[in-house]
Design a binder for these strands. Structure first.
Lengths: 250, 250
DNA sequence: TCGTAGAACACACATACGTTAGGAGGCTGC
DNA sequence: GCAGCCTCCTAACGTATGTGTGTTCTACGA
């Protein structure tokens, strides 16, 4: 099993940030047991309260993670894209503290948690890389807290757009400054802690100020620097390696 | 170096949740190089943007982690207490994406990041336990997001009080249902994404409803169940081992 | 071609929460 | 003993954001 044939290769990009893998590490990673699966939009990968036995690697499409609070309100806490190893959290900690759901149609690979534990234990370099990966996850959560806790609606939404853009570009998924934003305004609201109505108002305001251009769900960012400023966005918290940064600035 | 003589023993309690350590693991952990230090209230352990070379184990007192957003607003993202190994995040990821500051006078042990990396690599069981520990951290961040994003002021504050109570009890630090809340109302505001004025209003409301009893900074919870209900609090996300749960219910 | 459904959009009205300002009580240092 | 300072507390007022309701637009299938 090598990089050409295994569908797990997207995992190498992210984990490779954090460790110099040996040939054997690499082979072991790509040889992880897995089952491929396609998920419909709104399909669940895990439900809060489940005891999942598998982790999930995103191969294509987008997932989102969310929690439900009293009265049924929903808070989206993260977006995941190709290469993201989601749900290490849920599956390693035995009981899922949040749900994972498909934003768009997704191709994913399910990997048994036992196999993850096993490879992390027998290949410490891989274990460390996975650990680092979850540390970055934590950093993104922290920024998300600051976003919903201390920024006003316009800044929040601009920030979310910035994060999404930059992550897409870092993963090599976005072309130029335009991309399809796969979220409804209701989902944007749940991600920012606002209401759909106010998201609508705010998107319009951003549009009118020329910070973004909308055409149905596609969003174009003409002036990245202005949007980043409006969104109080600094990319440090993404902990991207230097050679992945500055792409969008050029 | 054994459990009787090393000041690092508080670390064993939390990491021990996640792995069966061998005698040698235990010795290696307690023999980690470290320097003890006392920190004044409001003293900094790390500042956002620093490149810290040490992690920090809390031995006594409380720390808080926070981020500053545009216009100087502050968002507190976590509280740490005895036994918490904070700042793995900052020190392993090279550049600190948030600050860590003392809430009260603290005793801490600084442990070189290199030593952490080393022991995680050479003692995979320890590495895994630390990994799990940071996964739980992530889970607490997720709940914090839901808290500031989707709950109203009263629920938010009640939730924060519940989390604090339960963690204190799980760590064996709280007696009965009363404890000293070491935060000013301004800090509570920064933790919940509210303003000090509104925190004041809300605390008073909680008091008037008999959910808490205040006497200066000490807070007494007479009816845990009612407070947990008011705070939409379920402890799953803390991922406490079963034998640590239910203490406060009894 | 029409009918349905989801999403975007709009507007009036309501309110939870923020802002500004100031006073009262309790520390600490001189 | 007083000055200075921090924290708590209160009140009046302002506003960003939520609520309720309804219309339009587009996609899609019968």
């Amino acid at each position: 099993m090598n990089a050409e044939t295994s569908p797990l290769t997207p995992m190498l990009r992210k984990l490779g940030y954090w460790a110099e893998f040996s040939e054997e590490d690499r082979d072991a990673l790509l040889a992880l047991p897995h089952t491929l699966k396609s998920i419909e939009p709104q399909g669940f990968v895990v439900r809060e309260g489940d005891k999942p036995t598998h982790s999930c690697l995103v191969l294509s499409g987008y997932l989102y993670r969310h929690k439900i609070v009293a009265h049924g309100a929903r808070q989206i806490i993260a977006l995941q894209m190709s290469g993201d190893l989601v749900d290490l959290q849920n599956s390693l900690l035995r009981v899922a503290d949040h749900s994972v759901q498909a934003l768009t149609r997704c191709e994913v690979a399910y990997i048994p948690s036992d196999a993850i534990r096993e490879i992390a234990f027998t290949h410490p370099r891989i274990g460390m890389a996975m650990w680092y990966d979850t540390l970055v996850d934590g950093s993104m959560f922290r920024e998300w807290i600051a976003n919903v806790g201390r920024r006003d609606a316009k800044t929040r939404i601009a920030h979310l757009l910035c994060e999404f853009t930059l992550r897409l570009e870092a993963a090599g998924l976005a072309e130029k400054n335009s991309y399809e934003l796969p979220m409804t305004q209701e989902q944007l609201a749940d991600a920012t802690g606002l209401t759909p109505v106010h998201v609508n108002r705010t998107l319009r305001a951003l549009d009118e100020e020329g910070l973004i251009v909308r055409d149905r769900r596609s969003v174009t960012v003409d002036d990245w620097k202005r949007l980043a400023e409006a969104g109080d966005f600094q990319s440090t918290y993404l902990h991207l390696p230097e050679d992945r940064l500055g792409l969008v600035h050029s």
